[in-house]
C-alpha cells in the first residue's frame, strides 16, 4: 500500500517535471542513477548480510535467549540481537508479538524493538559512506545505550513491574 502511494507520487512529480522541462528531468534521472550506482555495492552487501543473520537466528532461538526470567542479561542480549539484525517492520512486529507469546519478557522486547529500529550494525557500511566512521559508531553507540532506557521505561509502564 505505502509502495503504491510512493510510486504514484514519484510518477506524478516525474510527469510534472517532464512537462515543465525535459532537460532538467533528464538530468534528475541521471543524478538518480549516479546516486544509486554509488551506493549499490554497499546495499547488496548489506542485504546479503541480513539474509545470513536471519538464516542463523530464528524465533525459537531468540525467545530462548530473552525469556522473562533472563533479566538485564536478557535485555542486553535482546538489544544485541536487535542491533545486528535488520528486519522489515511488517515482519519485526509480528515476530516481537510472537516472541512475547513464547515467553519473552516485555523489557527484553522493548530493547529488541528499539535496537532493531535505531541501531544498524549490518547497515554500517552504508552509514559510514555518508557520515564517516566516527559519527556512525557514535550514533549507533548512543542509540544502543538509549535502548536500555526504552526497555526500562517500557518494563515499568507496560509491564507495571
Amino acid at each position: 500500500m505505502e509502495n503504491i502511494i510512493l510510486y504514484a507520487i514519484t510518477l506524478l512529480l516525474l510527469l510534472v517535471s517532464l512537462v515543465k522541462d525535459k532537460g532538467k528531468t533528464k538530468m534528475a534521472l541521471k543524478k538518480a542513477w549516479k546516486a544509486f550506482d554509488n551506493i549499490l555495492p554497499e546495499f547488496l552487501g548489506v542485504i546479503l548480510l541480513v539474509g545470513i543473520m536471519l538464516g542463523i537466528l530464528n524465533a525459537e532461538l531468540i525467545s530462548k535467549i530473552i525469556g522473562e526470567q533472563s533479566g538485564w542479561l536478557g535485555v542486553i542480549l535482546a538489544a544485541v540481537v536487535g542491533a545486528i539484525t535488520l528486519i522489515p517492520g511488517f515482519i519485526a512486529f509480528p515476530t516481537a508479538a510472537m516472541l512475547l507469546e513464547h515467553g519473552a519478557g516485555l523489557m527484553q522486547i522493548g530493547a529488541f524493538v528499539s535496537a532493531l529500529m535505531m541501531v544498524g550494525v549490518v547497515t554500517m557500511p552504508v552509514e559510514i559512506k555518508y557520515f564517516g566512521r566516527k559519527l556512525t559508531f557514535a550514533r549507533n553507540g548512543l542509540a544502543f545505550i538509549f535502548c536500555f532506557i526504552v526497555a526500562y521505561i517500557i518494563g515499568k509502564v507496560v509491564g507495571g513491574v
Binding site: I9, S17, K24, M27, A28, L29, W33, A35
Partner: peptide, 19 residues
Amino acid sequence: EMLLVIPPVFILLGLLDVW
C-alpha cells in the same frame, strides 16, 4: 523489497536535486 522501494526513492532524490 529493495528493488521495489529504491527506484522511486532515488528518482525523488534526483528531482529534488534538480528542482
